[in-house]
């Protein structure tokens, strides 16, 4: 309860209502200092709203939270002095260059002019943006924008970082770069609250995960616990011919257990922890004449997590914000 608390974030009963929508509906969180905590949920689950309350951008309608020991309403300024926010829409100024963005943030944080300049050079070089330093950010690719965004968040080292879907819309290479940066940040002292739609991302980075849906925490635990409750992995198969899916479903259910039909009419998946058994099941499909476009053995998708936790797939709703980000593919 005091600033000695080993908890970096302590939220109880947070609520935020927009008109009819209970965007966040009684969320409790406890995030240990120095850890990465993942908040996992589909579009519209309330992730961004929760993060914005914790970062003092929205006032909760009910409940309370302490961030690094400071009340988010009563001591908002103290909270702002110790945290940074990397928003879902990249929190950088598109009409300025990358360098100007970093200098601006440095100056606003109180760095002297020369120091702000040096610091911007240091960060641009470290994040592979030196060549693009004098280009306007609106001409950056999605991955460059994200890296600049994160750089802007660490001009002065924050004690806690909020990251809202840092890799949504990025290609695998850019995603890996962002993950690498996050891992290195954690190796420092920084605590990270990470919102994501991907179980794999939470699994790669987080020590603890809360799964939220409709503004409520529906499960909480370590990635290991969560995966154990879902099944360690899944075999994903995509067929050449969607008409063969019932046949494939029958065979996979026989070999591995109840198969799950994915939204893609040619795709299905089934829980499978064992690579050998997975390979045999694939061979079984081929022998039966089912044509396979591709298959992979990997982490359960968010849909499968939801299926396991709630018995129904995540009801995703179209989100303008996410759409906007997905459209900004690398130029």
């Amino acid at each position: 309860m005091t600033s000695q608390s080993p908890l970096a974030i302590e939220a109880t009963g947070l609520v935020k209502v927009f008109g009819e929508t209970r965007a966040v509906d009684g969320v409790d969180l406890a995030v240990r200092s120095g850890s990465v905590y993942g908040v996992l949920g589909p579009n519209g689950a309330g992730k961004t709203t929760a993060i914005r309350m914790l970062a003092t951008l929205l006032r909760p309608d009910a409940g309370s939270a302490r961030v690094l020991g400071h009340d988010i309403v009563e001591e908002a300024d103290a909270v702002r002095s110790a945290v940074t926010l990397t928003g879902q829409l990249a929190s950088v100024d598109e009409d300025l260059t990358g360098r100007e963005n970093l200098i601006l943030v440095g100056r606003l944080l109180g760095l002297k002019r020369a120091r702000a300049k040096n610091r911007s050079t240091e960060l641009l070089e470290a994040f592979g943006l030196a060549e693009a330093a004098t280009k306007l950010v609106k001409n950056y690719s999605g991955g460059m924008r994200r890296r600049l965004d994160i750089a802007a968040s660490i001009v002065v080292t924050p004690r806690l970082m909020f990251l809202d879907e840092p890799t949504t819309g990025l290609d695998p290479r850019s995603r890996n770069q962002v993950w690498d940066i996050i891992r290195m940040l954690v190796a420092g002292e920084t605590t990270i609250l990470l919102c994501t739609q991907y179980l794999e991302e939470a699994d790669q980075l987080a020590d603890g995960i809360a799964v939220i849906d409709h503004g409520k925490v529906i499960a909480e635990g370590t990635p290991g616990q969560l995966k154990a409750s879902v099944g360690a992995g899944a075999l994903h198969v995509r067929l050449l011919d969607p008409h063969q899916r019932p046949e494939a479903e029958r065979l996979l259910t026989r070999d591995l257990g109840s198969a799950f039909l994915e939204p893609d009419p040619a795709a299905l998946s089934v829980q499978c922890a064992d690579a050998d058994r997975g390979a045999e099941a694939i061979a079984g499909l081929t022998r039966a004449g089912v044509k396979i476009a591709d298959f992979s053995l990997g982490q359960p998708s968010l849909d499968e997590v939801f299926l396991a936790l709630t018995g129904h797939p995540a009801e995703t709703e179209p989100s303008l914000e996410t759409d906007a980000i997905e459209e900004e593919q690398p130029a």
Partner: peptide
């Protein structure tokens, strides 16, 4: 399981630079 291994094209090359840039920068007044 297909764990993601950062390929050579990621930040590997300037990892030292990143580490240095990240290593804490004190908060000015």
């Amino acid at each position: 399981m297909n764990m993601t291994t950062p390929d050579a094209a990621t930040l590997g090359a300037d990892e030292e630079a990143v580490r240095k840039a990240i290593s804490s920068t004190a908060r000015p007044p």
